[in-house]
Computed example of a mutant assay.
Amino acid sequence: MKSASHAAVSLAVAVAALLVTTPPIPAWAVVAVALVVGVGIDVDHFLLAWYNTGSLDPVRRCLRDPRIVFVAQDEIFDEGSVGALNRLLSHVLAGGVAVPLLWLRSPYVAGLVAAALYAHVLADLVSTTRAGVVVERSAVDRER
């Protein structure tokens, strides 16, 4: 999914949190935390691409042409350099470490982070599943 889609999902999480809870932090902070976590978690894609390819080319592309981060995200990573399963696993790993540590400082923020990460992973799963179904159907059509 694109960052703008993740931002929309994260904003929905923030609005829901504001509607159903009485946050111990300002409303703007609830929105900021949800957005930063919901979009920022994708920074791990750079680490995965580096691990999988041994190359920092995606980082170099973004530094050479920062506009691609906002308007041409498909140009950042080479095909197959991140991997859908690895991406989802790294998100779950990051959340599994971050949420308990945050809980020690602020259970509310930890719950907000958990909700934003859950929504992000769920959106990625839905997006990946839809893409997989399209590919499978295309393959079936070719065989006919």
Rank of each mutant, 00 (worst) to 15 (best):
Y118M: 12
K2N: 15
V121I: 15
L112I: 10
R144Y: 08
V9L: 08
D42E: 12
R64I: 00
V97C: 07
A4K: 14
A14I: 04
C62H: 02
A114G: 12
R105G: 00
A16L: 14
V33W: 01
K2M: 09
G83N: 08
V135T: 12
L93M: 11
V13I: 09
V135H: 13
V99F: 05
R67Q: 07
A98G: 02
R144H: 12
A139S: 15
A98N: 01
F77D: 09
P100M: 04
A131W: 02
V109S: 05
V69A: 10
R60Q: 11
A139F: 10
V30M: 05
V121R: 08
D78Y: 02
V33A: 02
A123P: 00
R142T: 11
I41H: 03
E79Y: 13
L19Q: 12
D78I: 00
V97L: 14
V20D: 04
L117A: 08
V113T: 14
A115E: 10
M1Q: 07
L85D: 07
V31L: 13
R61V: 05
R105L: 15
S55F: 08
R67L: 13
F77W: 06
L88S: 11
A139R: 15
A29C: 09
V30E: 09
D44C: 01
V36L: 15
S10T: 08
W50N: 02
S3L: 13
V133S: 00
I68M: 12
A116V: 04
A110G: 09
T22E: 14
G40H: 04
A123V: 06
L47W: 15
L112T: 08
W50D: 00
N86R: 13
C62K: 00
I68T: 09
I41A: 11
T53H: 06
A123Q: 12
V126G: 06
Y108W: 13
A29T: 13
V71Y: 10
A94D: 00
A8P: 00
M1F: 11
G38C: 06
G95W: 09
D57S: 12
Y108N: 03
V109C: 07
Q73L: 01
D141A: 15
Y118D: 02
I68A: 02
L35G: 08
L56D: 10
E143K: 13
V9T: 07
H45V: 04
L93P: 01
V97N: 03
T128E: 15
V82E: 05
S138G: 15
V43H: 03
A84N: 09
D42W: 08
R137M: 13
L102Q: 09
N86E: 11
A116F: 07
T21C: 12
L104E: 12
V13G: 07
L19Y: 06
Q73F: 02
L104R: 14
A16D: 06
Q73M: 11
G38P: 04
A7W: 03
R61Q: 03
E75F: 00
A12T: 01
F70Y: 11
V121L: 14
A7G: 06
V37A: 09
F77Y: 12
T22I: 11
S81G: 08
A8H: 01
F70S: 03
